[in-house]
Simulated scan of single mutants.
Amino acid sequence: MVRARSDSPLLFEIVEKPDFSVETKAMAAGQWPVAGMDEAGRGPLAGPVTAAAVVLDPENIPEGLDDSKRLTFEQREALFDRILASALGVSMASISAEGIDASNILRASLEAMRRALCGLPLRPKLALADGRDVPPGLPCEGRALVRGDQRSQSIAAASIVAKVMRDRMMADCGRRHVHYGFELHMGYATARHRTAIEIHGPVARLHRTSFAPFRLGVVEVVED
């Protein structure tokens, strides 16, 4: 017996797109404003971890919001401008490489999100955080959403703002430290970046010396 082929898409072909449903439910429950929080830069060997908090205007949500990793450079830049022009509140914060080394990347990421939230021009009643952890010390209720940047438009907006700001910071580092190519790899452990570290050494206050390969061997830190 031959089975008829379904016209429904296969599960692995479904691409989840963020929407405003979590925020809408919170609004109906009296929890408004709702802020989305996300960070960029947990994995690189260099540079800060940067976070953003965004309160979108329910009546003016930019089209095309998505997980920043699923967007092109041009799409992120365009949406960054639209978010800043339309959102009710946007705030950014970062923790330096030294701050990351002094604690750990998870704590630094959560602290950056907390600072971003506290910097908003309005006080949210609910904060949605991408991932499994709620930053400690929030001034409101917090809720963690796994793959939140693919589920919540507020978190997606925060992921775009955090990514664009961090990329711009790393591009500036690339102009100051021309041997490393930061503007190309944003501090991630590419072959070019690792080779530059082997030749020129890590840059003080820019490279995360608590990360491998630095903590696996003795390296001479270059003062800028």
Rank of each mutant, 00 (worst) to 15 (best):
V2H: 14
V2W: 02
D7F: 11
L10A: 13
L10I: 00
F12A: 11
E13L: 01
E16P: 07
W32F: 15
A35H: 09
G36C: 08
G36V: 11
P44Y: 05
L45S: 04
V49N: 02
T50K: 03
A51T: 08
E59T: 07
E59W: 07
G64D: 05
L71N: 12
L71R: 13
T72W: 03
F73Q: 15
E74V: 05
L79Q: 11
A87R: 09
L88Y: 08
L88N: 03
S96K: 14
A97L: 00
D101T: 05
L106V: 11
R107F: 09
E111W: 00
E111F: 05
A112L: 08
A112P: 08
M113Y: 01
L122V: 14
G131V: 11
G131P: 09
C140N: 10
E141M: 12
R147F: 09
S154I: 01
I155M: 09
V161G: 05
K163G: 02
V164L: 11
R166G: 00
R166L: 06
M170T: 09
D172K: 11
H177W: 14
A189I: 01
A191S: 13
V203Y: 00
A204Y: 00
H207Q: 10
F214W: 04
R215W: 03
L216N: 15
G217S: 04
V219K: 12
V222D: 07
E223A: 09
